[in-house]
Design a protein around this nucleic acid. Structure first.
Lengths: 274, 274
DNA sequence: ATGAAAGTTTGCATATGACAAATAAAACCC
DNA sequence: GGGTTTTATTTGTCATATGCAAACTTTCAT
């Protein structure tokens, strides 16, 4: 009775996709992995002939997605333009940024504003408090995106997504673990999500990074649709139990509520259809 | 004897480019222009059949470059991941950010860190001082990229780029004007660039935005190669002549020098080959 | 200098993308 | 609420844009 349901019960056939697009994005993602690479190296990684790869690289360069310095290719600074556009036009960023800044200042720690896309959590903004350690804590430095089940902000989002959607996300990404504490079992996760809904906020107790704790709260629109979430994180030594279990959650939930109110009052709130 | 040299004396034929890539990026850029759009609208704009456009949109969506909410397509939040990656891995950002922050605090105004790519100035980072007006001054709000000849930071870069490269850029982008004061004449621009090199920094006196002034200074590596530039900008009422012509330039050049020293001392400085 | 490695160009065959037409699903409207 | 228009999706077919190999050029290393 194994229900290892990779079923993919699409009644609708998947729409056609352009190989050229897929391959282009493969190259772009590869460049984010390698930081910079030369033609031959790239061709090897993506399993295309050198000549074909050459054409791709030239095309991507001409279009402004990647750039080249002496035969080394890397992501173009234009990506900043696209990214900046997305951020500046996001109402959650517009309204949430000052609150996140204030929260980081108040707690002295890191505070993050997160949205979900394609089943992953994407960092919309982060602020660093005075006492926060690490330049940007540890490895997470270059990371703008993470699995939802391993962070407080991510779990706060999952808890308020339709269950069907959650299952879809789990099917796509699974439950990879990051530390001993990471939740890797579906049932356990669903229980956790129940708890989160009951409490109204999420904990992350060393589930992402050993020695780190975080508290996250959902940000929802007036219909209850989840828009994103925010979190505050710090080393255990700073988030001792009293603070971690009482003080911080109150603060975080409070700020989440403020953002919700401001968004719902905003004339732009109609834009957030999702 | 008109030497209106659009000559394009390529002895090398332009390499092949993939139509699919060009079209994909056209769609991406269109979405940045329209913010969000539906299939039919997009198909109209890019002059492709609806069915073809459909395939493009699905492909781009699946690859994570764009996203869809109820048949409205827009840039994906993933762009933040790419943009964030580019920023975080840029040594000029790493080293320049704290200096720009300090400069904004010190002057109370806006300070920007700019790099050049594809002949345009791209905002790597900006900081806002306490007394700076506007949420992000005026229209410039969503803009992450600008022509080089209309800003102080841009002119500071142009002044230290090889003349050949400057001509290339001018051929590509021309000298579009933004205000009455914008430099729109080639010879005038080259004279200006001479002046900038003599002084070591650039002025922008209402050339970009009416009522706004800025001072920009180049940031170069030990070989004299331009890496980027920084600037401080404010309304004329704040940058009165004394301040604009003496005080601010000294400050700006000083910070540029500090950044240069730090970059050249950095072990990563080898990365900046360009 | 010489050879090897990396990048670039070109011709050709075929897989891939473009379109039209058909179908399905919304949105509109009287 | 049913009929009409608009919009989105699917599919078959054909033309061509893409992928590869092989030739050529440049760069690097010894």
């Amino acid at each position: 009775m194994t229900i290892i349901g990779m079923a993919k019960s699409d009644n609708t056939a998947a729409p056609r996709t352009l190989k050229t697009v897929t391959r282009s994005v493969d190259i772009i993602n590869l460049l984010m992995e390698l930081d910079r690479a030369r033609l031959t190296e790239i061709a090897d990684h993506v399993n295309m002939s050198k000549s074909t790869t050459y054409t791709y690289l030239k095309s991507l360069e001409k279009s402004g997605l990647i750039s080249r310095t002496q035969n080394q290719y890397r992501l173009s600074a234009n990506m900043l333009v696209y990214g900046g556009y997305v951020r500046n036009n996001n109402i959650l960023y517009e309204i949430g940024k000052p609150e996140i800044d204030a929260l980081a200042t108040e707690t002295g720690q890191y505070s993050h504003l997160v949205i979900e896309e394609h089943g992953r959590g994407i960092n919309l903004y982060k602020a660093k408090g005075e006492e926060a350690v690490g330049d940007d804590y540890q490895i997470a430095k270059f990371q703008q995106r993470d699995y939802l089940h391993i962070t407080a902000s991510g779990k706060a989002i999952l808890a308020y997504l339709p269950e069907e959607r959650v299952r879809e996300i789990l099917n796509t990404h699974g439950l990879p673990s990051r530390t001993e504490e990471t939740i890797t079992d579906r049932d356990e996760l669903f229980n956790e999500l129940d708890d989160i809904r009951e409490r109204g906020f999420a904990y992350n107790d060393e589930e992402e990074i050993e020695g780190f704790r975080a508290v996250g709260a959902p940000i929802r629109d007036r219909n209850g649709t989840i828009l994103g979430s925010l979190s505050v994180s710090a080393p255990i030594s700073i988030f001792k139990d009293e603070r971690f279990y009482d003080e911080i959650p109150e603060l975080v939930v409070n700020v989440a509520n403020i953002i919700e109110v401001n968004i719902n009052m905003s004339h732009r709130s109609s834009e957030i259809t999702e």
